[in-house]
Amino acid sequence: MKYALLIHESEEVFAVRQDPAKAPAYWGAYTAFGQALTEAGVMTGGAGLQPPATATSLRKVQGKNAIQDGPFADTKEQLAGFYLIEVVDLDAAMEWAERCPAIEYGGSVEVRPLLVM
């Protein structure tokens, strides 16, 4: 089955990316995780995202397109990136989620099955 691992991180973790002392370890961990996914032959796609401050949201309000600076929900954690994987079942997907660096950094990984088209 195909799953998305949706990675959510707090503002502090997004800041780690800009911190010269901590950034190498952060990127190193994600690179290693991505390599492990690739070597196991389960990765089918994915991307890291720029911080939420760079986001623009669009929706229709009273019949007109309204643009909002930033993501819609102002929550403590924001989407930081995602992986698309193909594994036998949810249990296997959860095992990969547990290895995701976001967990070590205090973030969360949402595991969602993809719609079958």
Partner: peptide
């Protein structure tokens, strides 16, 4: 829909 594993853990 989420594909839980059907076997003894």
């Amino acid at each position: 829909l989420a594909g839980l594993r059907f076997e003894l853990p």
